[in-house]
Design a protein around this nucleic acid. Structure first.
Lengths: 218, 218
DNA sequence: GTCTATAAATAGATAGAC
DNA sequence: GTCTATCTATTTATAGAC
């Protein structure tokens, strides 16, 4: 009927016949659409249109909208893992600069992350559990890096509450600056994070003057 | 045909007949729904259901979904303005603690703000311009407060780039911790921000050791 | 593997009765 | 001021042809 290919997508031979390439195409466009509209407001049709196929074809590949989202999240996780893995302690924290560079090269994935993070705030959101776990994991990793830096003597000792506080703040600055990168013209994501990392490390390395307990609650 | 009232909502007499109260009711529920689902995925029906009326009635009051959103934003702006207005310089910055307390008492409005901030990243979003302007305004206000603190001698002098950097970072920490407050169990929004404000102010007040230019780019 | 056709549900919006 | 009824468009999803 039409001039569509039946088995192969672009004449590629070998192990990648068509299904895998097509799935990757769909996921790529799904990232685009989910990033722009959020998950709930996105439509299968919009994704299918951008791929150049019909919604029915997308359904055949992934079974449904929600399963497509979960597949997008899985792929996204794998992409993220490419980043700092070998580093530990302060080197790992410094490596966050590279992650920001990676983000600027993949703004769609970053936008997806931010959109989902706030959208999935609602417990009924299909990615709610995923996002909760992801934030807990990131927090734990940041704390681990800081602990390693402490124990190796790269930075001065800090108590457990301070360690948690610094990890939460670091994650907050990353998220917050990323939002501003989208909404405020003229912000340089990498420069800003680089500066924050440098000044934080300097602060952690500085021996606190005796008797300076910053925080008094009780 | 039903047992609905015709003119008054709850027997209230005087200047507030019914329209105003009803509008306020609708806006209240609209905040709830927009917060949970984002603007685009929210439905007039869901809002109408929560008020206990039909979608048609909501349409009569606001004309359309988008106009309802803009009205919600307007009301939200007015609510926000109640906060620190008289303070300047460091006092204004310290006043951000009170704003966090207000946020914890109005989690729905906070969730709305965060959801819209990321959702409105897309230029085609009806609140895109609003959010862009809002972020620019907040940034400008933070810079102004820091400048006042500098000029009154409350904090040490800093160059223009540092001032912008500190204002951006402050806004980032606020946004980022707010997100974590929703996604990470056990975080104390007010405590965290209080600690960040205190340590930042201490840092701004500390005379920098001579020849310590943290940032080298060129 | 993708299509067409279609089902079943739901969206925003309008018209007109009361 | 709110309802009922309805319009038109769009949604996810399924069935079956090719």
């Amino acid at each position: 009927m039409t001039d569509y290919q039946t088995t192969t997508v672009r004449g590629t031979r070998g192990p990648y016949r068509s299904g895998i390439r097509r799935r990757a195409q769909i996921i790529e466009k799904a990232v685009e659409v989910f990033s722009s509209f959020g998950y709930r407001a996105s439509t299968i049709r919009e994704i299918a249109d951008r791929v150049g196929i019909t919604p029915a074809a997308v359904m055949k590949h992934f079974g449904g909208k929600e399963q497509l989202l979960l597949e997008v999240l899985r792929v996204w996780d794998e992409a993220q893992v490419e980043s700092p893995r070998t580093h530990t302690g302060l080197d790992a924290i410094r490596g966050l600069r590279d992650r920001m560079i990676w983000h600027t090269e993949h703004p769609g994935l970053l936008e997806l992350y931010l959109t989902l993070a706030t959208e999935a705030t609602d417990p009924s959101h299909p990615a709610h559990d995923y996002m909760t776990l992801r934030y807990a994991g990131t927090q734990r990793r940041f704390e681990q890096w800081l602990r390693e830096a402490m124990e190796s003597g790269e930075v001065e000792a800090m108590d457990a509450a301070t360690l948690r506080y610094e990890a939460h703040t670091l994650l907050a600055v990353l998220d917050g600056i990323e939002i501003q990168w989208f909404l405020t013209p003229g912000i340089d994501l990498v420069d800003h994070i680089t500066r924050y990392l440098e000044s934080s490390i300097a602060r952690w390395q500085a021996t606190p003057p005796p008797g300076s307990s910053t925080h008094q609650s009780t």
